[in-house]
Write a protein that binds this DNA or RNA. Sequence first.
DNA 1: TACATTTGTAACAGATTCTGTTACGTATTC
DNA 2: GAATACGTAACAGAATCTGTTACAAATGTA
Lengths: 149, 149
Amino acid sequence: MNTRFAVATHILAYLAHSKGQPVSSEVLASSAGTHPVVVRRLMGNLRDAGLVQSQRGAGGGTILARPAAEISLLDVFRAAQEGEPDLFSVNSTNPNENCDLGRVMQETLEGVLGNAIAAMRASLAAVSVEQVMQELAARRPNHCPKAFE
Amino acid sequence: MNTRFAVATHILAYLAHSKGQPVSSEVLASSAGTHPVVVRRLMGNLRDAGLVQSQRGAGGGTILARPAAEISLLDVFRAAQEGEPDLFSVNSTNPNENCDLGRVMQETLEGVLGNAIAAMRASLAAVSVEQVMQELAARRPNHCPKAFE
DNA sequence: TACATTTGTAACAGATTCTGTTACGTATTC
DNA sequence: GAATACGTAACAGAATCTGTTACAAATGTA
């Protein structure tokens, strides 16, 4: 699993914490331990998914497009992985041989994994960004004022 | 997800089908659509996990080390990914800054995903290699004699 | 014994992916 | 008009994955 999901969740939890106040990509990148362009790149996905709104120019930045309680981690996961190869797909080799055993194998495995994938999605859908933000705040009482305040 | 899981399942289903008869890496590779060395490399993992037994020399090859009904896809998954970075781990950046927000975030996300991962493992554990082999056989009545017989 | 077969393993190339970084145009505020 | 901040393209370095070659070791057979 790439870092997109963790960074996106980090960003959204931060935005949930600074209610309404636009946050710049530089501040978010500093908190998430990455580069501002990486944040802005991810932000494109979150914006397309309707999770955040950005504003250019001095004093600009990004805010949540809807209440943090109404953004699930499944929303975040889908937005972060949008346009990427499906993380849950069963990769097989076996291109277009004269035999379709590869395809049947892939379908069989996908059928086997179907229930597990649905369970994972349901688990992500049951947790909101606000819950994550509150758990983070609870677990770090007075640390790192620069990173998450 | 890399192709190891699919190839390993393919190999074991094949071995389950050719009961007791050793199968060479060349035949397995031809069926799985990959290279014999790839099969032998994977076979090292399956051997270490106690799922197969190999024999060198003329007439050698690989056989299942225990009945196919007693090998779950969770066994296969674990063996195939052994030594690889954990597929379910939440990768975050944030090395060793003065602040441990990255670690707390990772722990929080891993806590959130814990139930989903457990559900996925349970789903894999509930399916045996024999079931996969039978489903494959049922879904391809008379095709590809060279690939799976 | 000599030889063919097959595994075990190391080493490397090519492709792909991911992250970080630089660069620059555009929009917005003061 | 200047400073700020986003949006996006482009590229480099690292890492990963798969396929491939090469070769030693083991095993069965003539």
